[in-house]
Amino acid sequence: MDRTSASRMEAACSLLAESERRYLLYLLAEDRGANIEEFISQVAAWELDEPAGTIEKETRQRIYVSLVHNHLPRLADYDIIEYDLRSGDIVLDDGFDDIKPLLEQFRQTEEVPEIRQRPAL
């Protein structure tokens, strides 16, 4: 493996090490795009192991801030997603295909049964 390939693999593993980023990508992979509001409740539900309808406003706000200020910019920097904060739209970008096999490996080992039972990416 050359140095460039090794660096890309390390970056991919680093990006996918964070559960909120993986959860977002699992959901995006199903539809190739959606609105951030559609993700917040489901990401929170998986993270907290609670039903999506019971997530408190403060928790939703914390996840929104985390996505907007941390996770979305990191994924966009590697061309995995594109997003527009004004509209809230998020879509997969060309770089997603590079990490898709690794993301699938992560999906199969997630602690949340609902994630493992979803169709393959």
Rank of each mutant, 00 (worst) to 15 (best):
residue 42 Q to M: 15
residue 57 K to M: 14
residue 44 A to G: 14
residue 57 K to W: 13
residue 32 R to T: 12
residue 62 R to Q: 09
residue 43 V to P: 04
residue 91 V to Y: 07
residue 65 V to D: 10
residue 87 S to N: 08
residue 71 H to M: 00
residue 40 I to G: 07
residue 45 A to I: 13
residue 51 P to M: 11
residue 66 S to I: 08
residue 35 N to S: 06
residue 83 Y to V: 05
residue 80 I to L: 08
residue 71 H to G: 09
residue 67 L to Q: 07
residue 71 H to D: 00
residue 93 D to E: 06
residue 74 R to S: 05
residue 48 L to I: 06
residue 41 S to N: 02
residue 77 D to C: 04
residue 74 R to W: 06
residue 82 E to S: 14
residue 74 R to M: 10
residue 48 L to N: 12
residue 34 A to N: 12
residue 31 D to I: 08
residue 34 A to D: 09
residue 93 D to K: 03
residue 92 L to W: 07
residue 36 I to N: 01
residue 82 E to Q: 08
residue 88 G to T: 11
residue 49 D to T: 10
residue 65 V to W: 07
residue 74 R to Q: 09
residue 39 F to Q: 06
residue 49 D to W: 04
residue 68 V to Q: 03
residue 62 R to H: 13
residue 83 Y to E: 01
residue 48 L to V: 14
residue 45 A to M: 08
residue 44 A to N: 08
residue 86 R to Y: 12
residue 37 E to A: 15
residue 85 L to M: 12
residue 82 E to C: 05
residue 85 L to D: 14
residue 73 P to K: 03
residue 41 S to A: 15
residue 60 R to H: 11
residue 44 A to I: 14
residue 56 E to K: 06
residue 89 D to L: 10
residue 51 P to I: 00
residue 48 L to Q: 09
residue 51 P to S: 06
residue 44 A to S: 14
residue 57 K to D: 01
residue 52 A to Q: 09
residue 43 V to N: 09
residue 63 I to W: 11
residue 46 W to P: 11
residue 30 E to Q: 02
residue 70 N to M: 15
residue 66 S to K: 15
residue 71 H to T: 05
residue 75 L to W: 00
residue 76 A to L: 09
residue 38 E to R: 12
residue 34 A to S: 03
residue 93 D to W: 05
residue 88 G to R: 02
residue 38 E to Q: 14
residue 64 Y to Q: 06
residue 73 P to D: 01
residue 30 E to R: 09
residue 56 E to A: 11
residue 54 T to Q: 10
residue 89 D to M: 07
residue 46 W to I: 14
residue 93 D to P: 01
residue 91 V to E: 03
residue 84 D to V: 12
residue 58 E to G: 15
residue 37 E to W: 15
residue 41 S to H: 10
residue 67 L to K: 00
residue 71 H to L: 03
residue 82 E to P: 05
residue 62 R to T: 03
residue 88 G to S: 07
residue 76 A to C: 06
residue 80 I to R: 05
residue 88 G to P: 04
residue 54 T to W: 04
residue 52 A to D: 05
residue 45 A to H: 04
residue 50 E to C: 09
residue 83 Y to G: 00
residue 34 A to G: 06
residue 48 L to T: 10
residue 78 Y to R: 03
residue 67 L to W: 04
residue 90 I to N: 00
residue 55 I to P: 03
residue 46 W to A: 12
residue 36 I to P: 02
residue 49 D to R: 09
residue 32 R to H: 13
residue 90 I to D: 03
residue 91 V to N: 14
residue 55 I to R: 00
residue 36 I to T: 09
residue 52 A to I: 05
residue 67 L to V: 00
residue 92 L to I: 10
residue 69 H to E: 00
residue 33 G to A: 05
residue 54 T to E: 07
residue 60 R to T: 07
residue 62 R to W: 10
residue 56 E to C: 11
residue 77 D to R: 13
residue 70 N to V: 12
residue 77 D to M: 02
residue 67 L to Y: 11
residue 36 I to V: 09
